[in-house]
């Protein structure tokens, strides 16, 4: 047998079936404005934006080992950038979302330079401090309503599209595009050389360094990419809400606690995990939300239970029983059939 009889593949049978199913689901999602009611469409949009946040946090914590509990800094930043750029810069809201993403990336650079000095768990709390600084600073901006916040002016809202249905549909499609972009970027990063480097760092930082991987730069790149996309997601979240305040924009519960629970429950360190997690999370929320605080207690216990008993989450439990990968990342050596 010669070397030419082997090839390296990343796809698998299951992933081809998944791709076919995915296309059907995608088509249904694209057409949602034509079959879903207004309330369902809003919920679906929210689900998609949470999927974006969860995938991005998963890339940060599950792959790059940067456990942030302060991503609300970028969600809020994106939201405030949207409001500022449309209200005072006269930008079209869609353009403002893109610019918000760029701002998020730019701001992430000095933030990373500073908080990367903190290691491990202290890094986590450092990100929280950053988010607090952003929140308290936003409360000082009186042009955007200070501590009590402001609403998106009617002309800005109307500039999005003609008629309420068209606006709702556009805002939904933007959310769908954002979720797909986030998934594509996460998947792309993981399949790239950077992805291999990340996995190497996660498995053994010392060994990775000895292989000549620039750990700081790899993590920095991931942090900035995630910061940019999180800010753009934040802009879209507040384009849906049409109202912003420091407490809502920089809410640790909404933009970090829930996101972490989604990823942990679904399966941290897997591309599929956040998808499973976001479905479970919204099923729980829609059935238990009436319980209020009790719901959050149950969610917290559920997440702790998963972390202690099945640290790879629900998707990890599936994976333990079968070798399914919907988003194939591992490279396999496969023997070619003999001619």
């Amino acid at each position: 047998m010669s070397a030419s009889q082997y090839r390296i593949v990343q796809s698998s049978g299951a992933s081809r079936i998944a791709a076919a199913l995915g296309l059907i689901v995608l088509a249904l999602l694209v057409l949602a404005p034509y079959w879903a009611g207004r309330a369902d469409l809003r919920l679906l949009g929210e689900v998609l934006l949470y999927l974006s946040l969860a995938s991005l946090w998963n890339l940060l914590a599950g792959y790059a080992g940067l456990v942030s509990v302060g991503q609300q800094a970028f969600v809020g930043l994106g939201g405030y950038a949207l409001f500022g750029l449309t209200m005072f810069g006269g930008l079209h809201p869609v353009l403002a979302v893109l610019v918000a993403g760029v701002i998020g990336g730019l701001v992430a650079m000095p933030v990373a330079a500073l908080i990367f000095r903190l290691r491990g768990a202290y890094f986590a709390i450092g990100t929280w401090v950053m988010a607090e600084v952003f929140r308290l600073s936003a409360a000082q901006v009186s042009a955007l309503g200070g501590g009590s916040g402001t609403s998106l002016p009617t002309p800005v809202v109307q500039s999005l599209a003609d008629g309420r249905d068209a606006r709702e549909a556009l805002s939904y499609w933007l959310a769908l595009a954002m979720a797909l972009l986030a998934l594509a970027v996460v998947y792309g990063v993981l399949r790239s050389r950077n992805g291999l480097a990340l996995t190497a760092i996660r498995d053994n930082e010392l060994a990775a360094r000895s292989l000549g991987i620039d750990i700081w730069r790899t993590k920095f790149t991931v942090y900035v990419i995630v910061g940019a996309l999180t800010a753009a997601t934040g802009a879209l979240l507040f384009l849906q809400k049409l109202r912003i305040s420091p407490d809502a924009a920089f809410s640790a519960n909404d933009w970090t606690a829930f996101v972490i629970f989604i990823v942990v429950i679904g399966g941290i360190g897997t591309v599929e995990g956040p998808i499973i997690g976001v479905i479970v999370f919204f099923l729980l929320r829609e059935t238990l939300a009436d319980l209020g605080t009790t719901y959050l207690i149950i969610l917290g216990m559920f997440a702790i239970g998963v972390m202690l008993l099945a640290p790879k989450g629900l998707w990890g439990m599936v994976r333990a029983r079968s070798d399914i990968q919907l988003f194939p990342l591992r490279r396999k050596v496969v023997a070619k059939p003999k001619d």
């Binding site: 456990v67 768990a121 942990v264 605080t293 959050l296 207690i297 917290g300 997440a303 972390m307 202690l308």
Partner: peptide, 26 residues
């Protein structure tokens, strides 16, 4: 949760934080 990995203690205490906060609220 204690071992080599950073995530479990962090996420479990984070979960505890949410439980405590909402328990007190209740």
């Amino acid at each position: 949760t204690l071992g080599g990995d950073l995530l479990p203690p962090l996420l479990v205490t984070f979960g505890l934080s949410v439980i405590l906060q909402n328990g007190l609220l209740e």
